[in-house]
Design a protein around this nucleic acid. Structure first.
Lengths: 256, 256
DNA sequence: CCGACTTTGTGCATGCGTTCACAAGCGGTA
DNA sequence: TACCGCTTGTGAACGCATGCACAAAGTCGG
């Protein structure tokens, strides 16, 4: 499939055979955590930390130390027993496994409030996810630059996506438009979709979809509120202490 | 703990003892899916559908029919064998289990691009999650109404949250401010936090945190791109067909 | 009233992910 | 070189979630 898009492999570092078998076997849940480890490690590297133990890293990432070691073992044995891990080495190996050695061009569809936020979000370009295309149907928006990129009309999606080698499509449209947009992205050869619309997308097997559903997140929180309130009422009716955990309350807040 | 906040239970429907034991036993994964079922069912109800079978509902929700029935069985037996489920009945029971019979007041901290998007997002108020407070540090923003609500200063967070009975705090600040904001929310008695900042928050045990991490989502997609590209290269180098799944490509796109 | 058909609810087996516990391996030290 | 302490890497046990397959329970037609 990559071969369809001209010189797709220019910047890709091919995986070694041993890595390929490993990559196939990495549990989905572990992949998500590896991304978290990567961020923590990058932060450490920026602060000049060169070595780290599984215990330290696991605490910073908010997970069990044993789980962290198992997760890292999925990508190989790059630690030194009795010492720990070299931060730089770990960073580069996780980046390689996650496919971050290649840039992944991102297209955002639906330039409303959320689309604006995504287009302006600084976190993507710096980490290998440059936003290269924006789409909408509103005539007033077409051609207007948002975050430095002019908005294209949704009807040009196939041509633009192919031209700019878009590999990830982000759907930030209202729910009724989501499936249609999804179909167009798939037609344009996009195989990875991040969906913010509260809709269950139907896609072919060869397309990977990830969903971010704010309402669902809220409702899960709501469930826990209800469960706790109920437990509290039935257990003793007493007031549960609410105080903080001793962490300092000092910081400033800066607008994104 | 609810008893601490005056007349907290005014609109709450207390759970029956049988439901309480059930609620305790519902797997986390099932809770997330129940929220999805609820949305699908609500959409059906709006279109006048009154009854639905597990097969239909599961397809619309994108899950296995058996799994759907098991999920529903966690909240009770409200179907009719040989017929299916009554949409209204199912909606009301899921809402009750998820704690949606009570309104959950939401506070958004960090009124940048994302904060604006959240404050204006129409999906919350309609479904029992009214945004009642906004916070930032930027003097130019304080007092300015966003989505109909004036922005308060972060220093007033405790008073405002208590006054408006905020039960869910949303963190949409830059990473460096997230932990500090989190601590303040916790001090203000907020026990549920939805975190958009790419930071691992440290909280006491009695606080529930859910994380939405765009960079992590992107990197998971990147992993799958890399894995597939690699498989394709090593399997045969051939081009995988990309065509759509026969779904119509007809819709319009409207800006949120 | 009865029998055939449909669909739910669930016991059970399977597979995946997490956790434990410990052997293997490395650096430091005498 | 031989020993000691520390940390990694992983085999194995455990627990949770998923999917299957079927009994239970209801409707509908005659």
């Amino acid at each position: 499939m990559a071969s369809q898009r001209g010189e797709g492999e220019t910047t890709t570092t091919p995986l070694e055979p041993a890595d390929r078998e490993r990559a196939r076997a990495i549990p989905e849940a572990a992949v998500a955590r590896l991304a978290v480890y990567l961020r923590v490690l990058s932060g450490m590297a920026d602060q000049g930390v060169t070595a780290v133990s599984s215990e330290e890293l696991s605490q910073a990432a908010g997970v069990n130390a044993a789980k962290l070691r198992k997760d890292l073992s999925y990508i190989g044995s790059y630690g030194t027993r009795g010492v720990g891990y070299d931060v730089e080495v770990l960073v580069s190996h996780i980046e390689r496994i996650l496919g971050l050695t290649r840039n992944h061009s991102v297209a955002v569809v639906g330039i409303g409030n959320l689309g604006h936020a995504l287009a302006n979000y600084g976190g993507f370009p710096g980490r290998g996810f440059p936003v290269t295309a924006l789409f909408d149907v509103d005539p007033d928006l077409i051609g207007v630059p948002v975050g430095g990129i002019p908005v294209s009309h949704i009807d040009d999606i196939t041509a633009v996506c192919l031209e700019r080698e878009v590999s990830i499509g982000v759907i930030a449209t209202p729910p009724p438009a989501a499936q249609s947009v999804c179909d167009r992205l798939v037609s344009a050869g996009v195989q990875c979709i991040l969906n913010f619309a509260p809709v269950v997308l139907q896609v072919p097997d060869n397309v990977e979809v990830r969903k971010v559903d704010l309402a669902v997140e809220m409702q899960i929180l709501s469930f826990h509120v209800a469960r706790r309130a109920d437990e509290a009422v039935h257990n003793s009716g007493g007031g549960v202490s609410v105080g903080n955990n001793g962490l300092g309350v000092d910081g400033m807040v800066i607008r994104p």
